[in-house]
Design a protein around this nucleic acid. Structure first.
Length: 583
RNA sequence: GCGCCCGUAGCUCAGGCGGAUAGAGCAACAGCCUUCUAAGCUGUGGGCCGCAGGUUCGAGUCCUGCCGGGCGCACCA
């Protein structure tokens, strides 16, 4: 199929309409009524206005110049040549400057219910990803403290994106990059060690020399503030001090133990929080492993780049010519003091990602790191990879609020609200749904009181309630002895209310929505879709009874709401939010 | 100063590839439970899509400039 036939793969119906139009164009060309030097891209959309039909196309508008005819005249020619092989189309209208609107027979929509019933939990699944191996790296928090709410948003976005990608046929690998190499983990060890000394009765925190003290303006007094002072540090220290094996160590070994064991504790804590949040990873990748003397990937990466003539020395430091790939200035990989930069690690890490065979690499970063993108892209290019295969998704920071007032947070002092605490207070479902209520790169106010509230102000319960409600209908029907017959024995044509048709149309758009959300990395589209679907369902439920004495109608409606329940369930699953059967 | 992102209803935000009369939730106001779950439903009001140009059959959407806000500009991570 050539590129000119590219169109959104959607329900069979949209595809049917598209083929009908293409056939009409070819038929018109054969009849000599259109010149068609090149087959135009045929796009079919669903009009916002119901009066404009079920589907509409603007091909005629775009062809005006090439055909040297008025759009309306072109539209008339196309319509004249429209064949209607399977009889789905009821009528075709030309409107406005040359829109062609298609009105379908209501019966044409009923097949959607059958599709959903058959596909069930797979409805919306597709193969656009074509098995391409894609890696998503997200959260990647420093193992120096508990996760906070910003990490939570990154986790929610990343996890949902992974679910979407897997559902659309990509082969997805989730990875967490552990920053266990640089000065931050040194500080972690020093922080724990300092608390140990204090617990031992040694009042002088000055026994610990902070590690990051090599910058010019970093006075001794200042440097002390690099230590982590949170309560969790003291907790770990207390555990160590209760351990006779620890106490038996020499002082230097205690320091090492504090660092190494501290990292392990923090990682375990982070993994635990993420598990409770419903997020898991295929791989936890250690930054330190990049420097393994037996297999020094950082050195290998720099050798690679040096061989390409992209590395030079200046002022005692080793630089990468990122400016050759669009960066503002060249960047340092090895400092004059011999220490590698974070950038050097990142280069080696991303080089390794490509060497592991990923055809697409997605990083999810906090938006405050956006200035880092050009140099990373440059590094990807410098290593000989197509920069188009490397995407960075920026997640804006979260403003934590309580009753409309911002909650003050400072990581170093330990005065911050952890993701665990937030989950405890509002629940993981509400938390995740709220994180995905906006575009990832949009600022998000997270008001604890609002997210906790189980009212109409809180969309997560609105959506979950729709699901629970439908489950209840089936329970009630079961209690009344109403047994749902096979779909082939049900007269779906009884679904003739406008509300019922609207619901079906909305359901039929789900696969396209999923595909769009996956391909554009926008999981938030799911929450919007869910709110709309739940809204239609609630209105329908309120207005019409599902289980009545009219059994034929009852069966038809039960299959309809069963389909709704399926789609709500599938969408919630893609968000990592539960679909409760009872509320 | 340079770069990136943002500016849509009172508030918070959606607006697939440029399409027809720009949407939702909340807030405000007025209503609806004898009936499958009221965590629900119905109705009303509310707009210079920041401003000014440009591109074209058509711009909230694309381009340029300006104004306003956020963030980033290390031999830190």
């Amino acid at each position: 199929m050539s590129a000119r036939y590219l169109y959104a793969k959607d329900t069979n119906l949209k595809q049917t309409i598209t083929s009908i139009i293409i056939n009409a164009l070819e038929s018109a060309k054969a009849a000599g009524e259109l010149t068609l030097p090149a087959m135009p891209a045929v796009t079919v959309e669903t009009p916002k206005e119901a009066g404009h039909g079920d589907f509409a196309t603007t091909v005629a508008l775009g062809m005006a110049k090439a055909e040297r005819k008025a759009p309306k005249a072109i539209a008339e020619i196309i319509v004249k040549h429209i064949a209607n092989p399977d009889g789905a189309v009821e009528k075709v209208e030309i409107a406005g400057p040359g829109f062609i609107n298609f009105f379908l027979k209501p019966a044409a929509w009923l097949g959607v219910i059958k599709d959903i019933d058959e596909a069930a939990s797979h409805y919306g699944h597709s193969h656009v990803g074509a098995g391409r191996l894609v890696q998503v790296e997200f959260v990647s928090a420093n193992p120096t403290g508990p996760l906070h709410i910003g990490h939570g948003r990154g986790a929610a976005v990343g996890d949902s994106l992974c679910r979407l990608l897997a559902f659309t046929g990509f082969d997805v690998r989730r990875e967490f990059y552990i920053n266990d190499f640089g000065s931050q983990v040194q500080n972690l060890g020093a922080s724990i060690y300092m608390r140990c000394r204090q617990l031992a009765g040694d009042d002088g925190a000055q026994v610990v020399v902070p590690v990051v003290a090599d910058t010019a303006d970093d006075e001794a007094g200042e440097a002390k503030s690099n230590l982590y002072l949170g309560e969790y540090i003291t907790d770990i220290a207390r555990e160590f001090m209760d351990d006779p094996d620890f106490l038996a160590l020499a002082e230097e070994d205690k320091k090492t133990y504090c660092r190494e064991e501290g990292i392990k504790r923090m990682l375990a804590l982070i993994a635990d929080t993420l598990a409770r949040f419903g997020v898991s990873f295929d791989n936890w990748y250690s930054e330190r492993s990049l420097y393994d003397p037996a297999n020094d990937l950082v050195k290998a990466a720099m050798d690679d780049l040096r061989a390409k003539g992209l590395v030079y020395e200046d002022g005692g430091a080793l630089w990468l010519r990122t400016t050759e790939f669009g960066d503002d200035k060249d960047r340092v990989m090895v400092r004059a003091n011999g220490q590698t930069t974070y950038f050097a690690s990142d280069i080696a890490y991303h080089r390794d990602k490509y060497r592991r065979g990923f055809s697409e690499v997605i990083d999810i970063w906090g938006a405050d790191h956006h200035g880092y993108i050009p140099r990373m892209k440059a590094a990807i290019s410098a290593l000989g990879n197509d920069p188009e295969t490397f995407k960075v998704l920026l997640v804006q920071l979260v403003n934590l609020m309580r009753e409309g007032q911002p909650v003050k947070m400072s990581k170093r002092s330990g005065d911050f609200v952890t993701l665990d605490e937030v989950m405890e207070e509002v629940g993981a479902d509400a938390c995740r749904f709220t994180f995905l209520l906006r575009r990832a790169d949009s600022h998000l106010d997270f008001d604890l009181d609002l997210v906790k509230r189980q009212t109409s102000e809180n969309p997560v319960y609105y959506v979950q309630y729709a699901h629970a409600r439908l489950c209840s209908v089936f329970r009630q029907a079961g209690e009344k002895g109403v047994a749902l017959p096979a779909l082939s024995d049900v007269n779906l044509a009884r679904l003739d209310l406008p509300e019922e048709l609207n619901l079906i149309k909305l359901l039929s758009g789900f696969p396209e929505l999923v595909e769009g959300a996956a391909l554009s990395d926008e999981p938030h589209r799911l929450t919007y879709y869910l709110q709309e679907l739940a809204g239609e369902l609630h209105a329908y439920y309120f207005k019409h009874r599902i289980v009545t004495d009219d059994l034929e109608l009852t069966y038809a409606r039960m299959y309809l709401v069963k389909a709704v329940r399926t789609v709500i369930g599938n969408a919630l699953r893609l968000l990592g939010v539960s679909a409760p059967e009872v509320m």
